[in-house]
Amino acid sequence: MDTFLKNLAEILEIDEIKTIDRFQDFPEWDSLAVLSVIAMIDAEYQISIHSSDIKGIVNPEELFKLICSKKSK
């Protein structure tokens, strides 16, 4: 989880992000950031997710749960 949060912080160009921080509250959270997150998840976890999968995701905790659920399939 620590590495995951560190990667997200890097994409959003912030020092740190917590599991319950809302993505929408960060000025760098836009469609390009979503693409960067998708690329990061693909590289780190070898999982393909789509922009539409992330649409309803509010915070890192929910995103990590999505990764875990896809990974277990």
Binding site: I11, L32, A33, L35, S36, I38, A39, M40
Partner: peptide
């Protein structure tokens, strides 16, 4: 083809 924005 790796889809990734330039910044990342």
């Amino acid at each position: 083809a790796v889809a990734i924005p330039m910044k990342s």
